[in-house]
């Protein structure tokens, strides 16, 4: 346990955050957008665990991470359900085709 560990963990957090965000920016497939979101969430979990550890309250950090896991799994479930419904009623997952609401 030294400085470099915390640096590595935070790099991982920022990397996950950045890759997830990048995925949201360039992906046109709705399900893959949800994948991007999940990647971002992994970063959030990791950082919560990390801050818990480094503040000397590991259980608190873990319990927060647990809540985040649950919350974002629910979001993923609802999102996937939405995506399935989109596929059913619109017939595609391409964001280009679900961009009718504009202006």
């Amino acid at each position: 346990m030294n400085i470099s560990t915390s640096m590595i963990v935070l790099t991982a957090v920022m990397g996950l955050f950045g890759i997830g965000l990048y995925c949201l920016l360039i992906t046109r497939n709705l399900i893959r957008v949800l994948v991007g979101l999940q990647i971002m969430v992994k970063g959030a979990m990791l950082v919560l665990v990390f801050v818990g550890q480094s503040q000397g309250q590991p259980s608190l950090g873990q319990s927060m991470a647990l809540t985040v896991i649950v919350a974002d799994t629910i979001v993923a479930v609802v999102g996937l359900a939405l995506a399935v419904q989109v596929k059913r009623s619109i017939g595609t997952l391409d964001i280009a085709d679900i961009s009718k609401l504009k202006r």
Binding site: L21, L24, L25, K100, R103
Partner: peptide, 17 residues
């Protein structure tokens, strides 16, 4: 200004960024 409301999810996220 209305053209900035592209309705495309990617652009919306881009605005957040």
């Amino acid at each position: 200004l209305r053209t900035t409301q592209t309705g495309k999810l990617n652009w919306n996220v881009f605005y957040i960024l």
